[in-house]
Design a protein around this nucleic acid. Structure first.
Length: 879
DNA sequence: GAGCACTGC
C-alpha cells in the first residue's frame, strides 16, 4: 500500500477534500504556488537580471512541481482506494490502480537517483501518470513547463528578430512604461502602438442581484474555509442565489409537470435543485436524474453534491458516464451525460425508475439532448407522475417553453462579476491582426489580469503565437513578460498544462484558445477576453455526404458566454473586435443546433432502436433537414440495418449495440464472418477517436513524418496502419515513451484502448466471437468494405478520384499513407471539405469485392473498368 | 500537403 504509507493518518474529510480539489478546477487554484513565486521574485523586477532570475525561479518551481505532482499521484491512489472502497472494481480499474502504485514507486526511486545527479531541469522528464480519461486528467498536465524552456531559443538574432526590432523601433515608445504596467496607474505613459485600435465601452453585463458581500465571502473562499465542518457547507449552500427561491421552486414543481428553469452560471441550479427535490421527498418515488453534456461536469457536480450531503460518492449521490458507472442501488441523485440517459431509454423506455428528470445545459443543444427533448416530452404524456425540468440559459427560454406546451418558466438570477463590453468603432478587416494588437494594448495599458483570446483553430493559434512572440521579443525589457499559452483540443495533454500554471508575479498570461475555452474548461485569473467573433463549426451536406469545418460568425449567446469568461473571479473586460451594430444586427441569437448540421446516420439508427419508426412524426425542437433523414435511411437500408419497410433488422439491432458510427458498427458486425474481430475492433476504436492519433508539430514535421512512414510499410492503407500503431503500442505494454518517440498522442491512444475494451465486452453480448486473423489482410480489408462499401471511389486519369455511387470529384487526403500511391479503387472512412474535397483514412480494395459484398448496391457495370476487361466476362456478374 | 468542440449500456 504505497499510498497509505504517506497518507495513513488522513481522515475521511481530508480525503474527500482532496478529491474535490482535483476535480473542481473551476473553484480551486494553486494559491500557494503564486505566493511562493511572489516571495521568490519579491518585486525584484528591475533591469536585465529579470530574465535569468526568471529562469532560475522556474527551475526551482519545476523541482517543486515535480514533488507536488508526485504527491498528487499518491493522493490519487488514496482517493481511488477510498472512493471505491467496498465497491467491486472491474479488472481494468484494478490494473489501473496497480499501475499507479507502481508508477509512484518508480517515480520515488527515480527521484532519489536524480537528486544525487547534477541538476539538469531541461533533461528531466516527469513520467506521465496513467489515467482513464476523465476529470482528473486536466490536473495531470504537468510537463508543459519543461517544454517552455525547450521552445525558447537562447538568444540568437534571427532574421525575424531583426525584422521585429526594426518594427518595434517604428512604434512610439514613451519612456517610463518599463515595469509600470503592473501598477494600478494605467494613465501613466502607456506604450503606444502605431496601429492601435480604438474601442468604445458600450455596455456592462452586470451580475443580476449582484451582492458584494456574498460574493467576496464566496469567491475568496480558500483552503481554510474548505476545511471547515459540514455545517459550514450548509451555510454556504444558503448563500447561493437559488436558496431564496427554494420554496417557490418546490411549489412550482408540485404544481406543474414540466418546468423550464432559467439560471445563469453560478446560480447553483445544478447542485442545489436535485438536493431540494431530495429533501422534499421526491426521491422516495424514484431517482432524480440530471444530465450534463460533458463527462467532467457530471463527475465534478456529483462529487460536490455528495460532499454537501455528507455521503460517499457512488452511494446516495452518483454519476454515470461512458466507461464509468459510479452509482449503486442506493443512488437517488444521479448525474450523467446526456448520451448515457439516451442509452438508458433503450433498456427502460418509460424510465420508470426515475421520478424526476432534469436536462441541464439545455441551451447547448447537443445531439443527445435534442433527442431527449422529444423522448421526454413523449413519456411525460404517458407518465403524469414524472416531473421534467429543462434548465437553460436566458436567450431561448421561450422556445423551450413553447416546445413543452407552454410550460412555465422559472427564473433564477445568476451571480457573477460585472463585465465591461467594448466594441470597435469600425469593423476590423483582419481580425487576427486586430486581436494581437488588442492583446498588446491590454498588456501595456491595463492593470494585471490574464487575457483570453478566442481564435478559430490550431493554425490561427500557431500563427498568433509566433507573431506575439516576435512582437514582444522586439520590445525586450520595455514591457513586462507576456506568457503565451496556446490551447486547443488536440494539443498534447502535457502542453495543455501550461494554461493552468499560475502566472508569475509581474508577468501576464495570454491564452490563445479555440472554442474549447467557451464551455469545456475554465481558466482561473482571466480578466480580459478578446473576442474576434468567429468560430469553426461543422456543417454537413446531405447531398454530397461531405462534412466541412467553416469559419462562421458566432451567435449572440456565444458572444455573451465568451464575455462571461472574464468575470468569473472579479470584474472583467471583454473586447469585441466588431461593432455594436454588428452584434445587434449581424449575429444570430443562437447557434444552429447540431442536429441541423450533422450526418444523421447515428441519430436515425438510435431512434429506430428505440422503436420510433415514424421519424416524420417525432417532435423535434428543431426539425433536422429532411434530405439528411432520407439520406440516413437510404444508407441504413444499404447497410442492411433497415428492411424495406424501414424497420430495424437483426443486423441493425446488433449494430445499435455498439457506441460507434453505424458504418463502423456494420464493419464490426461483419467481422464475425471474416473471423477477424480482434483486428476490426482495434481499427474501429482507432477510427472513432478521430484524427488526433498522430501529432505533427510544425517544427518537427520531418521527424514526425518519418515516424509515421514505418506504419504504412507495404502501402497497406490507413486502416491497417492504424491497426499497426495500436498493436505496436500494445507490444510496448502501452508505453508513454514509445508514443513520444513515434509522435503519437498518448491521450488518443488511451481513449482508443478504452473504446476497444468496451467493444470487446459488447462483442460477447451480441454473440460475436473474438477471433484474430492478423496475416490475412484481404480478410480485414473485406471486412472494412462490408461497412464502408458506400464510400468507394475510383481513380481518374488526372490523379483525382470519383465517388462511385453519387459521382463527385474527391482527393486522397495528404495525411494518408496512400497519398502518393493512388490505388485504382479505394474505400474511405470520411469525406471532408477543407481546401479541397478530401477522403480521410483510405484503403485499397478490389472492385470485385464490392459486387461480392454488396450485390444489392453495386452491379458489375458499376465497377466495370478497363483493367477488368481482361477478366473473363460474366464471372461474378449479377443478373 | 493538412487539423472547432463535445459525446456513447
Amino acid at each position: 500500500m504505497v499510498g497509505m504509507e504517506y497518507q495513513g493518518a488522513d481522515n475521511e474529510l481530508q480525503k474527500k477534500k482532496r478529491f474535490r480539489r482535483k476535480i473542481e478546477s473551476e473553484e480551486e487554484d494553486e494559491d500557494y504556488e503564486v505566493i511562493r513565486i511572489r516571495q521568490r521574485e519579491d518585486g525584484r523586477t528591475t533591469s536585465n537580471e529579470i530574465e535569468s532570475l526568471r529562469i532560475l525561479s522556474r527551475q526551482k518551481y519545476l523541482k517543486k512541481r515535480e514533488l507536488k505532482k508526485l504527491q498528487e499521484l499518491r493522493d490519487e491512489i488514496v482517493d481511488e482506494e477510498y472512493l471505491f472502497e467496498g465497491v467491486s472494481l472491474t479488472e481494468a480499474e484494478i490494473l489501473g490502480l496497480r499501475y499507479k502504485k507502481r508508477l509512484c514507486d518508480v517515480a520515488n526511486k527515480k527521484r532519489r537517483l536524480s537528486v544525487e545527479e547534477e541538476e539538469d531541469a531541461s533533461e528531466y522528464r516527469i513520467p506521465e501518470v496513467y489515467d482513464r480519461e476523465g476529470a482528473v486528467d486536466q490536473q495531470k498536465r504537468f510537463s508543459a513547463a519543461l517544454q517552455r524552456y525547450r521552445d525558447d531559443p537562447e538568444g540568437g538574432v534571427s532574421p525575424q528578430k531583426a525584422w521585429e526590432d526594426h518594427q518595434s523601433r517604428k512604434a512610439t515608445l514613451n519612456y517610463g512604461s518599463r515595469n509600470k504596467k503592473q501598477t494600478s496607474d494605467q494613465e501613466d505613459y502607456p506604450f503606444v502602438f502605431e496601429d492601435q485600435i480604438e474601442f468604445i465601452k458600450a455596455s456592462v453585463m452586470a451580475g443580476e442581484e449582484f451582492d458584494d458581500n456574498v460574493l467576496n465571502g464566496k469567491s475568496h473562499d480558500n483552503a481554510a474555509a474548505k476545511s471547515a465542518a459540514s455545517d459550514k457547507i450548509q451555510e454556504e449552500r444558503k448563500t447561493l442565489p437559488i436558496y431564496q427561491y427554494r420554496d417557490a421552486f418546490l411549489q412550482a414543481v408540485n404544481d406543474y409537470q414540466v418546468l423550464i428553469i432559467v439560471g445563469e452560471t453560478g446560480s447553483g441550479k445544478t447542485t442545489q435543485i436535485p438536493q431540494y427535490l431530495h429533501e422534499a421527498g421526491y426521491t422516495k418515488r424514484g431517482k432524480v436524474g440530471c444530465t450534463q453534456p460533458r463527462r467532467v461536469a457530471a463527475m465534478s457536480v456529483a462529487a460536490r453534491v455528495a460532499k454537501e450531503m455528507g455521503v460517499k460518492l457512488g452511494h446516495e449521490v452518483g454519476y454515470s458516464i461512458r466507461f464509468e458507472d459510479c452509482t449503486s442501488e442506493n443512488t437517488v441523485l444521479k448525474y450523467m451525460t446526456d448520451g448515457m440517459l439516451l442509452k438508458e431509454f433503450t433498456d427502460e423506455p418509460d424510465l420508470a425508475s426515475y421520478s424526476i428528470l432534469m436536462l441541464d445545459e439545455a441551451h447547448e443543444r447537443t445531439l443527445p439532448t435534442d433527442l431527449l427533448f422529444g423522448l421526454v416530452k413523449d413519456i411525460a404524456r404517458l407518465r403524469p407522475d414524472l416531473k421534467v425540468l429543462i434548465s437553460s440559459a436566458t436567450l431561448d427560454a421561450e422556445k423551450f417553453s413553447d416546445f413543452f406546451d407552454s410550460a412555465p418558466v422559472f427564473k433564477i438570477p445568476g451571480r457573477r462579476f460585472p463585465v465591461e463590453i467594448h466594441y470597435t468603432l469600425a469593423p476590423e478587416a483582419d481580425y487576427m491582426d486586430a486581436a494581437i494588437v488588442t492583446a498588446l494594448q491590454i498588456h501595456t495599458r491595463e492593470p494585471p489580469g490574464d487575457i483570453l483570446m478566442f481564435l478559430t483553430g490550431q493554425d490561427e493559434i500557431e500563427t498568433a503565437e509566433e507573431i506575439l512572440k516576435q512582437r514582444t521579443r522586439g520590445l525586450g525589457n520595455k514591457i513586462a513578460e507576456l506568457i503565451i499559452c496556446p490551447i486547443y483540443a488536440i494539443l498534447p495533454t502535457e502542453l495543455q498544462a501550461k494554461i493552468f500554471e499560475p502566472t508569475p508575479h509581474g508577468a501576464r498570461k495570454v491564452v490563445l484558445a479555440t472554442n474549447i475555452a467557451e464551455t469545456s474548461l475554465t481558466i482561473d485569473g482571466i480578466k480580459y477576453v478578446i473576442d474576434p467573433g468567429f468560430c469553426k463549426i461543422k456543417s454537413y451536406s446531405a447531398k454530397t455526404g461531405m462534412e466541412s469545418l467553416q469559419v462562421t460568425p458566432i451567435s449572440k449567446a456565444s458572444a455573451n458566454q465568451r464575455a462571461g469568461r472574464s468575470g468569473r473571479t472579479g470584474p472583467g473586460k471583454c473586447f469585441r473586435l466588431y461593432t455594436a451594430f454588428n452584434f445587434q444586427h449581424d449575429l444570430d441569437d443562437n447557434s444552429v443546433p447540431e442536429i441541423q448540421r450533422t450526418n444523421l446516420l447515428n441519430v436515425v439508427l438510435t431512434m429506430k432502436n428505440l422503436g420510433i419508426n415514424n421519424l416524420i412524426n417525432f417532435e423535434f425542437m428543431d426539425q433536422p433537414p429532411s434530405e439528411a433523414i432520407l439520406k440516413a435511411l437510404e444508407l441504413l437500408f444499404a447497410l442492411s440495418a433497415l428492411d424495406k419497410k424501414g424497420h430495424l433488422t437483426k443486423v441493425g439491432k446488433r449494430m445499435a449495440e455498439f457506441p460507434l458510427d453505424p458504418m463502423l458498427s456494420k464493419m464490426v458486425v461483419a467481422s464475425d464472418k471474416y473471423k477477424c474481430s480482434e483486428e476490426i475492433i482495434t481499427i474501429a476504436a482507432m477510427l472513432s477517436v478521430g484524427n488526433a492519433i498522430f501529432y505533427c508539430p510544425k517544427d518537427k514535421r520531418v521527424l514526425a513524418e518519418n515516424a509515421k512512414i514505418s506504419f504504412h510499410e507495404g502501402n497497406v492503407g490507413d486502416h491497417i496502419a492504424l491497426l499497426r500503431v495500436y498493436n505496436s503500442w500494445k507490444e510496448t505494454n502501452f508505453s508513454t515513451q514509445w508514443c513520444y518517440e513515434n509522435y503519437i498522442q498518448v491521450r488518443s491512444m488511451k481513449r482508443a484502448r478504452d473504446i476497444r475494451d468496451q467493444l470487446e465486452g459488447l462483442l460477447e453480448k451480441v454473440g460475436i466471437e473474438l477471433t484474430s486473423n492478423p496475416n490475412d489482410l484481404d480478410a480485414i480489408k473485406k471486412c472494412i468494405t462490408s461497412g464502408f462499401f458506400p464510400h468507394t471511389a475510383r481513380l481518374q486519369k488526372n490523379g483525382a478520384y470519383t465517388t462511385l455511387k453519387h459521382p463527385q470529384t474527391v482527393y486522397v487526403h495528404p495525411s494518408s499513407g496512400l497519398a502518393e500511391v493512388l490505388p485504382r479503387w479505394v474505400v474511405y472512412h470520411e469525406l471532408v471539405l477543407t481546401s479541397k474535397e478530401y477522403m480521410r483514412q483510405v484503403t485499397e480494395v478490389k472492385p470485385e469485392w464490392l459486387v461480392e459484398i454488396a450485390p444489392h448496391y453495386y452491379q458489375m457495370k458499376d465497377v466495370d473498368d478497363p483493367a477488368l476487361k481482361k477478366m473473363p466476362r460474366g464471372k461474378g456478374r449479377i443478373g
